[in-house]
């Protein structure tokens, strides 16, 4: 699909957005912890995909490329704003996710890193080994984080139900 975007297909770009937006958004949400900023960042990430599509090497792992853009975008932006607005002090904004919904439970019960691991495994479909590479930590750490997160999340889901 990225190769088609590279050839200038707007349809391919829209299809990419539809297919990847949940995964990209959830990944970004794990950094921002609020809907407004994560949504804004997601749109910026997709704009960057357009602007940098020439750097993508066809045949290589497209989701890894997309994730790198999202990760660097979030880190750069948060680094730039940190002196004035620390993450924990981010202004309260509009949160469209219902209380007790999965996004709400993830935010309330999981650490940022656990949210990322769960997102990458479930929505990106990555193996623990790939996640470990992307997050620069041992595979065992990813596996244990994922298991712990899953336990917490399943418990939270049961409590809500």
């Amino acid at each position: 699909m990225l190769s088609d975007v590279q050839e200038g297909s707007d349809e391919a770009f829209e299809a990419l957005y539809r297919e990847a937006r949940n995964a990209v958004f959830s990944f970004l949400y794990s950094y921002y912890q609020n809907y407004h900023d994560a949504e804004d960042a997601m749109q910026s990430v997709f704009l960057k995909v357009k602007l940098r599509i020439g750097q993508y090497t066809p045949g290589t792992n497209g989701s890894a490329w997309l994730l790198q853009i999202a990760k660097h975008h979030a880190l750069d932006e948060l680094r730039a704003r940190r002196p004035s607005v620390a993450l924990d002090e981010a202004p309260e904004g509009f949160e469209p996710f219902e209380d007790g919904g999965i996004m709400d439970l993830m935010r309330r019960t999981l650490s940022e890193e656990e949210q990322r691991v769960v997102t990458m495994h479930v929505l990106w479909g990555w193996k623990h080994r790939q996640i470990a590479k992307a997050l620069d930590c041992p595979t065992g750490t990813v596996t244990s984080k994922y298991k712990r997160a899953l336990e917490k999340l399943k418990k939270a889901v049961k409590e809500v139900l």
Partner: peptide, 23 residues
């Protein structure tokens, strides 16, 4: 919950220099 692609992102052209035939 997630919105559609923002209009300014959708309409932003892919830089001509980046377009290339399938490799």
């Amino acid at each position: 919950t997630l919105p559609e692609l923002r209009a300014d992102v959708r309409e932003h052209p892919i830089p001509a220099s980046h377009k290339r035939p399938a490799l």
